[in-house]
Simulated scan of single mutants.
Amino acid sequence: MNKLILFNENTHPESWRINDPSCTLSTSKKKELIFFDKEHSKKLWHNCISKKYTHLLLLNESQIKIRHSETLDFTNPKKGELFFKNHLKNATLVIFFWGPLCSCLAPAKTVSKHWNDFFLPSDENSITYIPNTNKIIFSFEERFFAGTIKK
């Protein structure tokens, strides 16, 4: 458990997850994350996820094609790690969104290994986006979906 506060939660509202003492990322892994401010996050969401919607659950099958879904156990992160490794296998970096106003650039390997530090069971608007591919991973409660954003 690492108690070091690295990110300003006023500027990056969802960074509390990474600052939280229960976060399993080492300080060196936390330093690899690049948080975007609200305006940049909003532009990224607009360009990568949706120009029209600000909430993931408003997107429908005309905007997202789901290729695979699986229930992951937040108390058993190893199983989830395999899911993420499989769907992020060709990615080096991903953009992780906690909605349209908070996002970060993160190594795909870090998101794979520590997926349960990025996602929470109560999330409805978190999404991993693989740049230049339109591939995404998102969740609803403990159900995770891998798919593609249709542009």
Rank of each mutant, 00 (worst) to 15 (best):
H114D: 01
K52D: 15
F144K: 04
N134C: 14
N47F: 02
P13F: 14
L25N: 01
F118L: 05
F83P: 03
H87W: 14
L88R: 00
N116C: 01
L58K: 15
S15R: 04
L33R: 05
S15T: 09
I66M: 11
E142C: 08
E39L: 09
N116S: 05
F145C: 00
T71M: 08
L72P: 00
E9V: 04
P13N: 15
L59R: 08
L4R: 15
K42W: 04
F97H: 12
H12L: 07
K79W: 11
K151W: 13
D73I: 05
D20R: 14
N86I: 08
S28F: 11
R17C: 06
L4I: 07
T11L: 15
W98Q: 04
L44I: 00
K113I: 08
E32A: 07
D73V: 06
K151P: 08
S26K: 07
K135F: 12
C48K: 13
S26G: 05
I18K: 10
T24A: 10
K89I: 09
Y129W: 15
S41Q: 00
K150P: 06
D20K: 13
S50I: 01
S41A: 00
F83E: 01
L56S: 03
L33E: 03
G147K: 11
C23F: 06
W115E: 01
K79H: 14
I34T: 09
C48D: 09
W115V: 02
D73N: 12
Y53K: 05
E32G: 12
W115P: 00
L44C: 02
K109F: 07
K52H: 14
E32H: 09
L120K: 14
I49E: 02
T133D: 10
I5F: 12
I137G: 05
P13L: 12
L82N: 13
E61T: 04
Q63M: 11
I130S: 03
K89E: 12
S28I: 04
A108H: 07
K3W: 12
W45S: 03
